[in-house]
C-alpha cells in the first residue's frame, strides 16, 4: 500500500522505524505498568523501592 502512495524503500523504512519507536515506547510503558513496575524504576540504579523490582 505504501508503495502505491509513491513512497520509496527508504521512506517506508523510516515510517516503519518511527512507528516502531513510538509504539515501542508506549507499549513499554504499558507493559511495565502491567508488570507492576512503577515510573521511577528506570530512574536510578538503586532498584525500585516501590514495586520491589531491582534494576540490577
Amino acid at each position: 500500500m505504501l508503495f502505491c502512495l509513491g513512497l520509496g524503500v527508504g521512506e517506508i523504512i523510516l515510517i516503519v522505524a518511527c512507528v516502531a519507536i513510538v509504539v515501542g515506547v508506549i507499549v513499554g510503558v504499558i507493559v511495565r505498568k502491567l508488570k507492576g513496575k512503577c515510573a521511577c524504576c528506570d530512574e536510578c540504579s538503586e532498584g525500585c523501592p516501590h514495586c520491589k523490582k531491582n534494576a540490577k
Partner: peptide, 19 residues
C-alpha cells in the same frame, strides 16, 4: 560487583537491595 550509590554521609541507602 554492583554500582549502587555510595556517599560519604549517613542515610544514603534507604531501602534494602540484593546482589
Amino acid at each position: 560487583g554492583s554500582t549502587a550509590h555510595v556517599g560519604n554521609w549517613p542515610g544514603v541507602t534507604v531501602d534494602k537491595r540484593d546482589g
